[in-house]
Amino acid sequence: MARSTADPAAAGSPTRRRPVAVVTAVLLMLPAALLWLVGGIAFVSAIARLQGDAMFLFWLLAVAVAGLCLLVTLMTAAGMWIAWQGGPGVLRVPAGLTFGLLLAALAVLVLLDKVAYEPTMLTPMVVGGLAGTALLLLATPPARRWLDHRPR
């Protein structure tokens, strides 16, 4: 059976398939982006309920934390888009930050001997684990080849 000329492989231009590792890493970072966004909103909401003296200092802190959370959310979303398109591996930055904060939180919990099951700790731990898994997937050879590709 002859190939049609509409088939890109038949025309001589090789098609690039997105590696499964990149697709999985992008999907694993989606909860991290949402958690950063919700965390920033929740922090501002918690500060809004405070009462007392020197509230402007707390509002400065709330704006700073919300800004950082929004920045990491935007970095994650942009990294997911760029990784999907095959650009440089900027998704490693927010994934590394999220995973690093998980490791720091675990180290503090172990050092303070406060390791116990708390339902509120489950979501950040799972999202940190997903970010670590995304980091491992982005380090695989097919993902590296995909991310090192520069579109012309």
Rank of each mutant, 00 (worst) to 15 (best):
135 L>Q: 12
32 A>G: 13
7 D>E: 13
63 V>T: 12
87 G>E: 04
64 A>F: 14
131 A>V: 07
57 L>Y: 12
127 V>N: 07
72 V>C: 06
44 V>L: 12
5 T>S: 14
122 L>G: 01
37 L>W: 09
20 V>C: 08
134 A>R: 05
31 P>G: 04
140 T>D: 01
127 V>C: 02
19 P>L: 03
46 A>I: 07
10 A>G: 10
75 M>K: 00
107 A>T: 13
80 M>S: 10
50 L>Y: 02
151 P>W: 07
54 A>Y: 14
76 T>K: 01
73 T>W: 07
132 G>L: 01
22 V>G: 06
144 R>C: 00
69 C>W: 02
38 V>K: 10
86 G>P: 08
26 V>P: 03
70 L>D: 02
67 G>L: 02
101 L>H: 04
116 A>F: 11
125 M>L: 15
36 W>G: 00
85 Q>H: 10
114 K>C: 03
95 A>V: 02
6 A>T: 15
133 T>R: 06
17 R>V: 12
53 D>T: 13
42 A>R: 13
113 D>G: 10
26 V>A: 08
46 A>S: 14
131 A>P: 05
51 Q>F: 02
30 L>Q: 04
49 R>N: 08
1 M>N: 06
98 T>I: 06
137 L>Q: 02
26 V>Q: 04
72 V>S: 03
145 R>T: 04
16 R>A: 12
118 E>Y: 13
54 A>F: 14
87 G>A: 01
147 L>D: 06
36 W>C: 05
50 L>A: 08
85 Q>W: 07
136 L>V: 13
54 A>T: 07
73 T>R: 00
71 L>F: 14
21 A>D: 15
85 Q>C: 04
35 L>I: 01
119 P>F: 07
104 A>V: 14
64 A>W: 08
101 L>P: 00
143 A>E: 03
149 H>D: 08
85 Q>E: 10
93 V>N: 01
39 G>D: 10
4 S>T: 15
54 A>H: 15
138 L>M: 15
39 G>V: 04
113 D>A: 15
123 T>N: 02
61 L>I: 05
125 M>Q: 11
43 F>P: 00
91 L>S: 04
88 P>T: 05
51 Q>R: 15
16 R>T: 08
101 L>A: 09
19 P>H: 09
42 A>L: 11
50 L>K: 11
114 K>G: 07
150 R>T: 12
13 S>P: 00
72 V>F: 12
108 V>W: 09
146 W>H: 15
23 V>K: 10
57 L>W: 11
60 L>F: 13
58 F>K: 11
51 Q>S: 15
143 A>M: 00
131 A>G: 07
141 P>S: 11
30 L>C: 05
124 P>K: 11
144 R>S: 05
33 A>L: 11
147 L>V: 02
103 L>V: 15
144 R>W: 07
58 F>N: 09
28 L>P: 08
